[in-house]
């Protein structure tokens, strides 16, 4: 369970950004989490809610944008979701594909006063 240390890293960055932008309270935080990361969004949400109690982040809503494992076909340039690691273009059947998304673990934005 490393979602707690991920939460600490998130709050470190947010704390720094809030200070730099003269923000005193956090209302909303938006993250991007890829399907291929070892992060479970529900566990992250639980850790986040527990970690912000009684801090300057208290009451903030956590929005997690989940990014599916995505592929792009090198033959027909089609983009698609890779399901069950089939690594196969659903349009032309080629297995000559690149993975283009799914390993994201980013803070997108924050809102506050």
């Amino acid at each position: 369970m490393h979602e707690m240390s991920i939460t600490r890293s998130i709050l470190e960055i947010v704390g720094r950004q809030m200070a730099a932008n003269n923000m005193n309270s956090l209302k909303k935080l938006t993250l991007r989490v890829g399907e291929l990361t070892a992060i479970e969004p529900e566990v992250l949400r639980f850790c986040f809610d527990a970690a912000i109690k009684g801090t300057q982040f208290d009451g903030a809503a956590l929005i997690i944008e989940e990014v599916p494992l995505g592929g792009r076909c090198r033959e027909c340039a089609g983009e698609f979701r890779i399901t069950a690691f089939d690594n196969c273009c659903p349009k032309c059947g080629s297995t000559n594909i690149d993975r283009v998304s799914g390993d994201e673990l980013d803070i997108i934005s924050m809102e506050g006063d």
């Binding site: 991920i6 890293s9 998130i10 960055i13 947010v14 950004q17 932008n21 923000m23 209302k27 993250l31 673990l105 980013d106 803070i107 997108i108 934005s109 924050m110 809102e111 506050g112 006063d113």
Partner: peptide, 12 residues
């Protein structure tokens, strides 16, 4: 209330 774009890797 204002929104601030961060766009930073959590494990940066």
């Amino acid at each position: 209330m204002h929104e601030i774009l961060i766009e930073e890797k959590i494990l940066a």
